[in-house]
Design a protein around this nucleic acid. Structure first.
Lengths: 342, 342
DNA sequence: GTGAAAGCGCTAACAC
DNA sequence: GTGTTAGCGCTTTCAC
């Protein structure tokens, strides 16, 4: 493998000049630059990026911490991140953490080990938190991180998120206007702020319509198809079942829909179903799913931009907190509440 | 930031000893090791991995080239890769190439730039190919790469794939046994070997049953929901429409199913539908989808293992070519051919 | 505009 | 077992 010295010899210049010709072309004369480029070509020279990064203390790598790449919503977010990063000359290292904190910490440490310049975290968890605590380190300078999608409460990092409360309120309101009074809610993971915000929005809409909040209409879920299926089973077999079910994501809504049809009920004539995220399959379920669309790629692009700003311009006084718009997509899975009660 | 010298001073040993204590603990005495570890802790020392990798000429990074992470099948494969890689002490750098050759080449170059030790390519395309040609380089030593899932014909790299021909044949045979004589086939991307192999299997099954091959029953597709929807539209509105449609992946099958129901036809009473891959949504479509299950995680784990072997033991005489088993999952979307021939 | 030379932080011979 | 030392390939002062 040829190195910078080979090229220098071939071009009849010093290694410093080769380095400059490649990294800062306007610092060398056009003639020299040409000579160097020719030599590079002749030697088949490829700079050893490990050496470059080691020496210049920058990797141009961004680490993305994603709980699961199997989630179609995240894959769109990631695509957005990658596009923006590429434009700015950064590479993206995707880390599938499976939501496990130790894996998350391990990957986040790549920044401390100089393997990456910054982190985009798609989950409400601070992978740097208890390290500093444990060390009793007075190191209060935050590491370069941006939090997107699911954002930590009182987040001291720049963040990008949806107004989940408003979106859930809008969806619940849509159901209320269709005449539904008993609306089931299939929740996401208990600890997620997303879950809490969406429940809050749901409650707000009920209050605004003077419908009493009934805790027993809430069902646990974990964003999987299976959990939606299970939750729907619980809800439709209870006394006085709901006439509509709002699921906190589309997978659970699709799972719920199957369970309802298996029970011989019709969607939306007997029960309306609503989801959240607008994944590709939402438009292809039967009936097609009413849901909240999120600008997923924009989440990614915005998060990448915030991180790049942070890296290249240093931390601002107050970290940016971006709120992105939602879009209520009314399709065929929601309809008027059945008139004959019970 | 503290470095190895700080630690050496603190522990009262040489830098070499610190290096050894960390990388090869059994080469130093327990006492020294303890002293070093204590110093590491006290200094809050984190090795600069850029320096380590630069110096040792190994990154312990594996690059995975994936056409699109939005594909649920790939996300399972990737999970398998990551698990095996982690066990062996490697990190995975996921590169979403969107099937674009220039992006693929760019990422593959990370190996040449010493940013990664090897590549796992999930698409039938050699990102290193025309580089060598262009340079006229006599460099016939293949770069460390493993090809998985969609494998290049006459592949000179180690590879892992399904016996796609046998699988397609099994599925077609399943439909033939149900009495179907006119079986539509929705193809994948034209250039993919997957597509060709599956068509070959389809033809074999027809031949075995003495059913003449009818080219007009083949429809183009690109593995997307939309393309399945479109293809089904074409097939059901033609003269003498097929009584079954075999789609080369599940997304297209789900798209096709929607189109068929929109036309007022029933699945499987009027038309049977079959898919390929067994993604999570396949079991949750209405009716649930008959499909070919692939051991996706195992694809990933096997590919990772082959690459690690290649890296740690050097190339074998003949590259390993692994064939993984398929599993025909008969669900509710396929049934007997309608008796009244129209 | 260019070259000489000093390292970045670490590992790996090689001595002892 | 441990220390000394010579770099890995590159960037970046600092002279000229």
């Amino acid at each position: 493998m040829s190195n910078i010295r080979t090229v220098a010899r071939l071009a009849g210049v010093s290694v410093a000049t080769v380095s400059r010709a490649l990294a800062k072309p306007d610092l060398v004369s056009p003639r020299t630059r040409k000579k160097v480029l020719a030599a590079v070509d002749r030697a088949g020279y490829k700079p050893n990026l490990m050496a470059v990064q080691f020496r210049s203390r920058r990797t141009r790598n961004l680490v993305v911490l994603v709980p699961t790449i199997a989630n179609p919503f995240f894959s769109r977010v990631i695509t957005g991140i990658q596009q923006r990063a590429r434009e700015a000359g950064y590479q993206v290292l995707l880390c599938n953490t499976l939501g496990q904190e130790d894996i998350e910490r391990e990957y986040a440490r790549m920044v401390q080990n100089f393997q990456a310049d910054g982190v985009i975290q798609l989950r409400a968890f601070d992978p740097f938190s208890n390290e500093a605590d444990a060390e009793g380190a007075g190191d209060d300078s935050l590491l370069p991180m941006v939090n997107a999608c699911e954002v930590m409460p009182d987040c001291s990092y720049p963040s990008v998120q949806l107004d989940n409360r408003a979106a859930a309120r809008a969806m619940t309101d849509h159901l209320v206007r269709l005449g539904h009074q008993r609306i089931g809610l299939v929740k996401g993971p208990q600890r997620s702020p997303l879950t809490r915000d969406r429940i809050a929005g749901y409650r707000e809409a009920l209050e605004a319509a003077d419908i009493p909040f009934d805790e027993s209409l809430l069902c646990p879920g974990d964003f999987s198809l299976q959990s939606g299926h299970r939750a729907a089973g619980t809800l439709i077999t209870r006394d006085n079942p709901p006439t509509a079910i709002f699921c906190e994501n589309d997978e659970m809504a699709i799972g719920a829909m199957q369970r309802i049809k298996q029970a011989g009920l019709r969607v939306p004539e007997d029960i309306s179903i609503a989801g959240f995220d607008d994944i590709a399959f939402a438009a292809y379920s039967d009936p097609s799913l009413t849901t909240i669309a999120q600008p997923a790629e924009e989440f990614g692009a915005t998060a990448a931009q915030l991180l790049i700003d942070l890296l290249e311009q240093g931390p601002a006084n107050a970290p940016a907190q971006v709120l992105l718009p939602y879009d209520l997509k009314v399709r065929d899975s929601t309809g008027p509440a059945p008139t004959s009660d019970s």
